[in-house]
Design a protein around this nucleic acid. Structure first.
Lengths: 121, 121
DNA sequence: ATGGAAATGAAAATCATTTTCATTTGTGCT
DNA sequence: AGCACAAATGAAAATGATTTTCATTTCCAT
């Protein structure tokens, strides 16, 4: 069993919030760090096993990871230019909690995204 | 654009309204129906576009489809068994609208999902 | 019948992820 | 230092779902 490469966790932190294995890999490449894709996958998996990161699936099927307990925010994404604005969760937080409790769910998190066309597009 | 092959929808119904593309394909094969995998994928996609079926992701990355109840809803997904419960949007709808307006976005939609561990897991 | 549009499906391409395996690195021991 | 052995690494191949390509077939309206 392999342990997590600290640089991977580091990169995930710098990415702020969610990132896929591929994204972490490319971020590291661009940062000039030498690492193999395989190691990135193994490290993220290991972090997930240790409950240090959360794993979710994006709609396109890619797995995304984020630090547990990270103060999270949501995104307002433009369908045209892809630009994303960070926004506070507001009412969602309570909604998620209520819904989860109502159905007896534990260890709950949530994801939410708003998408549309920004002024420029 | 292709329209949905009715036999696909039919099979999905017989499957208990919950199956992956591969499963639908194999069910049809076993039932002696002649159909191509490609057509199954296209039909399910088309049904999803028309909001006739819901698309979710299983933990192994396979997309699963099921007949969906009705209008707009969100999902409470179990990280353990992958089971998904439909829940009303509630506060989210207004939140999305407010946030979008605040930033001058038009043509707005949103997605939201709650995940956790269900009672059984 | 005839032409064109839509539907079909076999095979190839794609893409994230996993596996294999040979090599490198690290650590403890003498 | 020298040695042995376990863990970590990563390139390349394998996997498996999904998508694309493209040639063929089916449907309709004329």
């Amino acid at each position: 069993m392999s342990r997590s490469n600290p640089r991977v966790l580091n990169t995930l932190e710098r990415a702020g919030g969610f990132a896929s294995a591929q994204e972490v890999y490319h971020l590291m490449q661009r940062a000039g760090e030498s690492i193999g894709l395989t190691t990135v996958y193994r490290s993220l998996q290991s972090l997930a096993d240790d409950k240090i990161v959360d794993v979710l699936r994006r709609d396109d099927g890619e797995s995304i990871y984020r630090l547990c307990g990270d103060a999270h925010h949501h995104h307002l994404v433009c369908k045209g230019c892809g630009d994303a604005i960070e926004i506070p969760g507001g009412a969602i937080e309570k909604w998620a909690k209520t819904m989860a409790e109502e159905h007896g769910f534990r260890d709950v998190g949530h994801s939410a995204e708003i998408y549309g066309l920004c002024r420029k597009c």
